[in-house]
Design a protein around this nucleic acid. Structure first.
Length: 169
DNA sequence: GCCAACGTTGGC
DNA sequence: GCCAACGTTGGC
């Protein structure tokens, strides 16, 4: 079981979109390091923080769970998609991109801003607080994950020892 | 809108 | 394989 942080711009797809959809395919990742995390390490049941990038303010908005492991991201092959990979397709190469499916676990009662993450001594070493951290999918230490849930007034965390109650969320 | 950080590309 | 040019990310 691993923990992750995944970035999305709320103007493109934010936590409220996931509240509406329930489950979503994490498409459009076009960075090899981020792809490798999805392809090689993300397992069903892993938990991920939903991070709002390019937002006011940027920060963690909630928690998701991996429900389907890596499979081809065919938006790379669709000319109509904003994520169409012109270069790869024109070169006639096979589609190298994958996505995973994630379901909403919860939207935090309060969003935890990047500034707050930076100020918190208990989150030292958290990748997203490093200046210039551009990786859109990052592994997160369990202790950091749990602390961020606490800062977000997570209901999921408060009942984590009571799996039956958690099913109600 | 600016710009620092950093990934990618392509000439050599 | 080096590295300059270029493109993108994302905070501010």
């Amino acid at each position: 079981m691993q923990y992750w942080l995944m970035k999305s711009e709320p103007s493109v797809y934010g936590i409220d979109d996931l509240v509406r959809d329930g489950v979503t395919g994490w498409e459009g990742v076009r960075n090899y390091q981020a792809r490798n995390f999805m392809r090689d390490e993300m397992k069903a049941g892993d938990l991920a923080l939903f991070y709002h990038s390019n937002a006011n303010p940027p920060g963690v908005a909630g928690v998701m769970r991996v429900v389907r492991e890596a499979y081809p991201d065919d938006t790379a092959e669709q000319t109509s998609s904003p994520y169409y990979d012109t270069k790869t397709m024109r070169a006639g190469k096979s589609n190298p991109w994958v996505r995973v499916d994630l379901e909403l676990v919860e939207k935090f009662a309060r969003e935890v801003s990047l500034a707050e993450l930076r100020e918190d001594a208990r989150l030292e070493g958290l990748m997203v607080t490093r200046k210039g951290s551009r990786l859109s999918i990052q592994p997160v230490e369990k202790k950091h994950f749990l602390h961020i849930c606490r800062l977000g007034k997570s209901r999921f965390l408060s009942c984590a020892g009571f799996p039956k109650l958690c099913l109600l969320l």
